[in-house]
Design a protein around this nucleic acid. Structure first.
Lengths: 249, 249
DNA sequence: ATCGTACGTTGTACAATATACAACGTACAA
DNA sequence: TTGTACGTTGTATATTGTACAACGTACGAT
């Protein structure tokens, strides 16, 4: 005991930057952190983040469940690693020397595409992802799309965070509405057949005149009650307009 | 058997509108749906949504866990009921006959206040909440803030959804960063002491010049790495500017 | 007034989760 | 050569949501 050299559990940052101090004692490692993370991403892409359990992941790697805790301290850290790996693997559409609106639109669309390709990421991604190498490269690249517009450094960060939050939410909503549609086991027609009568009784135009009118118009315009792609397109224009007003001032 | 009158499980809409057909057979009910929902909201407010387990909730109502399934078909439906109850209980700041920007700002701030008071709601709230009485009243009221601006019905719905999505995300991010700070058990100072050296080594200004410069400026401006209230204020202005551009056209 | 039955209530049970703990064996450092 | 640090794994625990069946209550029909 005494003042023994306690290994204080690997910090998340060390994991993200792969800066763990290797000692070389004991049996050979059968895996690497990257293999574990890659397998987890594959599993999440195929079956969703809730399918990424320690057991499933270990099975897909041919190891016992507890083995994974050698590579990753816990599930939260695993998700952080998965996210940073995604960010590191983005290939951005080049848009330098284009007008600012195109540059920012490209940033937005790249992020949207990423989240649509990996729907679990939008839900898992916190507002400020941990400072891994992927996140840092992404931050650097995206900030450059905002330079030369007369914004000071703080405003650049604010503007980027604002844009990215919009994209993340839009992608999350899209994925969610898609998942609901897939898992509902009820077609729109069946749903209306089941719930239409009650809704008609309860949504009288006396109490909710505007809601009924607008809701019906919106429902007919998009043929679903909620068209996620349209919401993204609409929101992107508004967001860029809003940032444009800031840039002009 | 034969063609017995199967009670096909209460639909969510019937629950939301409290339109369950009462039969009056069997023992008296010891609770009401509203009591269950109110207790669940209290529990979620006090300890977060993850504390709302069937067992805890039943205990706080003095019943056995399985009893709750008499009132609510499952946990998902319970959360929907909790949300609609929250929406029904909002008291909006009156802002009729004010300029449109003030009206929309009031809508945004009312929603933000709701989500800040009940942090679990921002995370639980889907993009399109189920059509309960609370949600309908809220939709009606908020749409009225958008009337008379020259927007057609579809654009009104788009604009409202855009504004509300921004608010929900901002509140969610705020709650999350607050929760992280509370549960970290590490002060900002301690965090920097532990992770500063590695970060300094890894974030060299060669690879990430813009990121380091802007990140440092942003970190110093808000004294935390992420100031949620500032992000909301900033984003609200941009969002209203963006909608303003739509309204003018 | 009586009695069958619909329905509220509850105890037990199950599958699944993350992960703590301790035993086992490997392979490097001394 | 040997001690020990460390990778691996089986077992175990505390949670979760909820299915199922037993039990008893009180209304509707007779």
């Amino acid at each position: 005991m005494s003042t023994a050299t306690e290994t204080p559990k690997p910090h998340l940052l060390e994991l993200l930057w792969r800066a763990a101090p290797e000692t070389g004692r004991g049996p050979r490692k059968g895996l690497t952190v990257d293999e574990v993370v890659a397998a987890a991403i594959g599993l999440a892409d195929a079956e969703g983040l809730e399918a990424v359990t320690v057991r499933r992941l270990a099975q897909s790697l041919g190891k016992a469940p507890m083995t994974l805790y050698t590579y990753v301290p816990g599930k939260a850290e695993l998700v952080a690693l998965m996210l940073d790996s995604l960010f590191a693997g983005m290939d951005p559409t080049p848009a330098a020397d284009r007008p600012w609106r195109e540059r920012l639109a490209a940033v937005a669309r790249d992020n949207y595409a990423l989240y649509r390709a990996h729907p679990w990421a939008a839900a898992a991604s916190p507002s400020r992802p941990p400072l891994g190498p992927g996140q840092c490269a992404k931050y650097e690249r995206e900030l450059r799309a905002l330079e030369g517009l007369g914004l000071d450094d703080v405003a650049m960060d604010d503007a980027l965070a604002y844009l990215l939050a919009f994209v993340r939410t839009a992608a999350q909503d899209a994925a969610q509405s898609e998942a609901e549609r897939a898992s509902s086991a009820m077609s729109d027609h069946e749903w209306w057949e089941a719930n239409g009568p009650l809704l008609a009784k309860v949504l009288d135009t006396e109490r909710f005149p505007t809601a009924v009118r607008v809701g019906q118009a919106a429902g007919e315009a998009h043929d679903a009650a909620y068209d996620a792609e349209h919401a993204f397109a609409f929101g992107l224009e508004r967001t860029l307009d809003g940032l444009g007003a800031l840039i002009r001032s």
